[in-house]
Design a binder for these strands. Structure first.
Length: 570
DNA sequence: GCCGTTTTCGGCCCGACTGTTTTCAGTCG
């Protein structure tokens, strides 16, 4: 059983306990444990196999550890089954509707016999919901609208789609006179791979003007709310964007608060509480004197608590507060640490630009090197064309200076683990990237053996997009035992890719975290198919930062000489 | 149900909004 399945069970238990009216702290304990497991880099199944104590996971104590063990070893949890039996099936779906909490859901069920979203909609139409005590016409109508919004609303939006839109909005507003701070907060600032909505915030001499301009931006759709300091509107793609203008002298604590995550903020507040401090978006109150200290700068907020500044990507309540306390936070990799791009395509296969255009674009980014890694025979280059491309790149090297071009290939790993080009060809190339592009539906066992075989092949340097997933599309990740892949990569000194192409982001943050923990060398590759795609590097760096990666964990932070040295050692 | 630089028991983040009220319950982020 995968961690995601365990998370579902404990989230469900929390919902059911809410409906039951259980102790709020007990409910929170289940929610907290679910979130901790969701972000935990190691599969529970493996922890149990290795005899590791589940209580190492923060938020998992004796009771939940025992329940988790039962769930993973038997595939079932008696406590959960009994709890489910106490309620009509589907009632927890009501809790997913904004505005409906446990109290309302319970009353809808017990007083109206409503236990599904469809039935609720009918009850609202029939006027039965508005008649309930302490509810009314307005509440009923709000619920109706929320149900419609829920149906209309797409899935969470990939960060690659959201960020360009947000950049454009911010660009339009920053040019207004008197704007001093304007940035994004929330899950976008933490660089989560998919986003539910966007939080923007800033300070300005005339906040009203910024708000008015914001809602009137040409590509902005329906305006959901508009006041003097706050507005919500729908951007292209159905993305809800909230803009909040705050006082300049509390911008730092506001930004901290609205960046989250919620669990990170709770950890901070619990810690503050032990120091006799009360934390809020307005600042820090010393409980002894009841005096509020405001923060214009976010860094100062953390320093006041005796903590290192915690980068937004780390704020997921995974031990970052403790590390900040000890002063041992990682020095995260930055976009400026990246010295080259090791995975790119040209019009020799399915790319759109010539080799020279790609190389010049990479040079313009300040890179020391770029590897040209077109697809192998199945998609592009057979042995003969590889030889010709090598010759062309050598000729190009003569003409260009200031950047080095590595010869390479993205070679297909066949269903049986063989590569689709022979050793005598692959051995002539500077860099060989192996990838799975076909027979994606193999069993976990077959797929794992297939990729392990490629990792063991001396010609292979890097495995590209190791799980094959495509964000927001119908392509689910392949079934593969990543733990085995990671261990083999370490053993064979092979590199795994963080594919920065925004539709992939593969390895993802959690996988990359685990890989790094085990000592796997990672490469952040754009998989560029056009010169513009080379800018995707920032998405991969975002994933690496969420995985707590430092420059030394990333192959392409090395200088040209170091990279060539690494590749020649294989 | 979890957890500990006052604690193995007794706490557990904080503030705001909304709709329904006439002082507040419920919900959200």
């Amino acid at each position: 059983m995968k961690n995601t399945a365990i998370v579902k069970v404990f989230s469900d238990i929390a919902d059911l306990l809410e409906l039951k009216g259980e102790n709020a702290f007990k409910i929170r304990a289940y929610q907290k444990a679910a979130r901790a497991i969701e972000h935990y880099p190691k599969e529970i199944r493996i922890m149990l196999d290795e005899g590791e104590n589940l209580r190492n996971i923060p938020g998992v104590g004796e009771a939940i550890a025992k329940k988790t063990t039962e769930l993973v070893t038997t595939g079932k949890l008696g406590y959960y089954e009994n709890l489910k039996a106490e309620f009509p099936e589907g009632i927890t779906n009501l809790l997913a509707i904004p505005g409906i909490g446990p109290k309302t859901a319970n009353r809808l069920s017990s007083e109206l016999g409503v236990s599904s979203v469809d039935a609720l909609e009918q009850a609202i139409k029939g006027g039965r919901v508005a008649k309930l005590f302490r509810l009314g016409d307005k509440t009923a109508d709000n619920i109706r609208q929320q149900i419609q919004a829920l149906r209309r609303k797409d899935q969470r939006i990939p960060i690659g789609e959201a960020l360009p839109i947000v950049d454009e909005i911010l660009g339009s507003l920053r040019s207004l006179p008197g704007v001093r701070n304007l940035t994004y907060a929330g899950s976008l600032r933490r660089f989560r791979q998919t986003l539910g909505d966007i939080d923007l915030m800033g300070t300005a001499d005339n906040p009203k003007e910024v708000i008015d301009t914001f809602v009137a931006l040409p590509h902005m759709g329906q305006v959901l709310a508009q006041g003097s300091t706050k507005a919500s509107a729908i951007a292209p793609g159905g993305l809800q964007v909230d803009l909040r203008m705050v006082e300049h002298d509390s911008f730092g604590s506001m930004l901290q608060y609205f960046t989250g995550s919620k669990q990170h903020n709770i950890s901070l507040r619990e810690r503050g509480h032990r120091q006799g401090l009360k934390l809020s978006e307005y600042g820090i109150t010393d409980l002894a004197t009841d005096k509020l200290e405001k923060f214009a700068i976010e860094e100062d907020f953390y320093h006041r608590l005796g903590l290192q500044y915690i980068p937004p990507e780390l704020r997921e309540a995974q031990g970052e507060v403790e590390r900040a306390e000890q002063g041992t936070l990682p020095k995260l990799v930055e976009l400026s640490d990246i010295k080259g791009n090791l995975h790119s395509h040209t019009d020799w296969s399915d790319g759109r630009n010539s080799i020279e255009e790609m190389v010049l674009a990479a040079k313009k980014l300040g890179y020391q090197y770029i590897a040209i890694t077109d697809h192998s025979a199945a998609y592009g280059l057979d042995a003969e064309r590889v030889r010709r491309q090598i010759a062309e790149i050598r000729a190009l090297r003569e003409r260009l200076d200031g950047i080095h071009v590595l010869t390479g290939i993205e070679v297909d790993i066949f269903a049986d683990g063989r590569l689709d080009l022979p050793h005598e060809i692959l051995s002539q190339l500077d860099i060989v990237i192996g990838a799975v592009h076909s027979a994606m539906n193999q069993s976990e066992e077959k797929m794992t053996r297939r990729v392990l075989s490629a990792i063991g092949d001396p010609d292979i340097d890097i495995i590209a997009h190791p799980t094959g997933r495509l964000l927001g599309e119908c392509q689910p990740p392949i079934a593969i035992d990543l733990e085995a892949i990671f261990r083999a990569a370490v053993k064979n000194n092979k590199v795994l890719e963080i594919n920065a192409w925004p539709g992939r982001l593969d390895l993802n943050d959690i996988h990359a975290f685990r890989a790094r923990e085990l000592g796997v060398k990672l490469a952040i590759d754009t998989d560029a198919h056009t010169v513009a795609d080379l800018d995707f590097m920032r998405f991969g760096v975002g994933v690496a930062r969420r995985a707590w990666c430092e420059p030394q964990h990333i192959l392409n932070t090395l200088s040209l000489e170091q990279v060539l040295g690494f590749l020649s050692k294989k």
